[in-house]
Computed example of a mutant assay.
Amino acid sequence: MDQERPRSTPLRIVATGEYVPVRRVGSDAFDRRWQKPDGWTERHVGIRHRQHAGDDESSSMMAAMAAQAALERAGLRADEIDAIISVGGVMEQAIPCTAVLVQRRLGLSSTGTPAFDVNATCLGFPVALDLVAPALTSGRYRRVLIVAGEVASAGLDWDDTDTAGLFGDGGAAVILEAGAGDEASCLLATHMETHSEGAEYCQVRACGTRMRLADDVDAYARASRFEMAGRATYRLAAQRLPGFMHTLFARAGVEARDLACLIPHQASVKALDHLQRALGLPPQVLVRILETHGNQMAASIPLALHHAIERGALRRGDLFAMVGSGAGLSFAGAVLRY
């Protein structure tokens, strides 16, 4: 995502889909676990309930189910997709990538359909969108499926009152295709920044090559849990966000007041409130699903997009933006006409 303002790119969001895990977990369950007063967790994290995946609800399963829902909405078959991109904070397994497992679940094992992952934590969807847009407009692909299946609950420390109640699981899918030159749907601009002074603020230290199971099993197990320095993350994000948003909107040639919707990553209620205040947005413009979904990592942005479309808050021809922060600390965003 370079710094020069690009031309708008004809690009159309064909359909979206969602998968909701069966198990709903109310915030009162955390109150009981932590021996807190009734309503403490909901007040603390701003979430009434979220879903947690069961043993049979893997990342690829939830992503594939969301993809099937999107395909049904679009009136398409799975074999009419030219590429599958999976985005996620944590892959289902180290090798192969999650997109391969989604391809198989969609019945495409023998088709050769390209399937690969984009690893940008919570920002996977806008990053994948930016990467795939030139391939669509050049004719390399006609139609691309971007999916997210997140099982955040697999890596939480259940005794951490700052993080355990914040996250939820779920699946999302978005089908994209190149827009026709005579229609309004387009991608106006994208922008991304990474500020690696925050690299340790949100992390899972194990499950890669940095720590090895054979060296210290107990240390490896501890490092397999999600760690977040919430206050430091918020401070750095609050410092960098205004400049980031200014650059994104300037590249698109729009202002916040021009947007029908702003679709953010559902990081936390504090982050959402700050974004709304910083941009001076009316409440109805900022799309919020945090209260009933929690922070679903890379699924948050495409799921919030899905809900905005399903609720009628986003209609064809509307101008909207997607924006978020992720581990790194990184920001990414896109401005589109739906």
Rank of each mutant, 00 (worst) to 15 (best):
T209K: 14
A327H: 02
C207R: 13
A219P: 01
T98K: 09
I84H: 02
H307G: 05
V118T: 14
S110T: 12
H191R: 06
A120E: 11
S196M: 12
G75H: 15
E57P: 12
R337M: 10
I146A: 10
L145C: 09
D117F: 00
E57T: 02
R140V: 08
L108W: 01
V217R: 15
C207I: 13
A128K: 02
M65H: 14
I289V: 14
A63G: 11
G171Y: 10
T137P: 06
G54Y: 10
R337Y: 05
P96M: 06
H49S: 14
A232I: 05
R32C: 09
G198C: 03
V147W: 09
A66M: 03
G253W: 10
G75E: 09
H49E: 07
S224I: 04
P242S: 01
A15S: 15
V20L: 13
Y201A: 07
A115I: 08
S59P: 14
S330D: 02
R337K: 09
L286Q: 00
P134H: 03
S153M: 03
P37N: 04
S196F: 13
L262H: 00
D169F: 12
A271K: 03
V90M: 15
H274W: 10
S268V: 04
V45E: 05
A74I: 04
Y19G: 08
P6M: 12
G75T: 00
D162K: 14
A219Y: 00
M65D: 13
R143D: 13
G326I: 01
D273E: 06
T98H: 11
A313E: 14
Y220A: 08
A29N: 04
D169Y: 13
A298C: 11
P114F: 12
A221P: 04
A214I: 09
A154V: 06
C202N: 03
I81P: 02
G168Q: 09
Q3S: 11
M211K: 10
E72W: 07
V20F: 05
V285M: 03
D162G: 03
G107Q: 05
Y201D: 09
F249T: 00
I85G: 13
A250M: 06
A69S: 12
R315V: 09
T190C: 10
P114T: 07
A120S: 12
H49Q: 05
R104F: 11
F249P: 01
I309L: 15
G333T: 00
N295L: 01
R23K: 13
S300A: 02
T121G: 04
D82S: 02
G89N: 08
L71M: 08
D38W: 13
P134F: 02
G294N: 03
A69K: 09
P10H: 00
R257E: 03
F125N: 10
T247P: 03
A238E: 01
Q51N: 11
D159T: 07
L188K: 07
C97R: 01
R205W: 09
M297G: 11
A223P: 10
Y338K: 02
G124I: 01
E197I: 02
A154N: 14
F30Y: 15
E255Y: 00
P302M: 07
A252W: 11
E18Y: 02
L259G: 00
S58E: 08
R140W: 06
L129P: 05
L259M: 11
S138Y: 14
